[in-house]
């Protein structure tokens, strides 16, 4: 398994090549990175890329019709659209405080959807 990724750890934007190599302790060779953090990032992007999802849910009894929310932890990248499907069905009522959980343990990932503002 090989992968080329653009590193986003800093603004340099290194093009990193990650290659599986069973003989190594880490299990991978990483080329093109200029720092240690780039190496970690490259391996993570190959093995288990994750992202924070930021989106909205429906809210009632408020001056706005949507409440901004986010995942309190990153979720697996390939689960983003599945998560969106679930989040899109959520509808809550104001008042709500920033950080309040609006949906627990989405898709059994252990990640919660939390309000990113009070309303």
């Amino acid at each position: 398994m090989n992968k080329e990724v653009v590193c986003i750890v800093c603004p340099m934007g290194c093009h990193i090549k990650v290659k599986k190599d069973e003989n190594l302790y880490l299990g991978y060779t990483v080329e093109g990175n200029k720092c240690k953090r780039g190496k970690e990032y490259g391996i993570k992007e190959l093995t288990n890329p994750t992202r924070i999802i930021t989106t909205t849910v429906k809210i009632k009894n408020s001056h706005l019709r949507r409440l901004p929310v986010k995942t309190n932890e990153p979720v697996a990248k390939d689960k983003i659209f599945e998560c969106m499907k679930v989040i899109n069905k959520v509808s809550i009522k104001a008042p709500i405080k920033v950080g309040d959980v609006v949906l627990e343990n989405i898709l059994d990932t252990g990640v919660d959807i939390v309000a990113s503002r009070s309303m």
């Binding site: 909205t56 849910v57 990248k77 390939d78 983003i80 659209f81 969106m84 499907k85 899109n88 069905k89």
Partner: peptide
């Protein structure tokens, strides 16, 4: 409106994996 019933697969929105 946003938050309708969106069929993400049908719209060919496969993630770059």
């Amino acid at each position: 409106e946003t938050k309708g019933d969106i069929d993400y697969d049908k719209k060919e929105k496969k993630l770059a994996l």
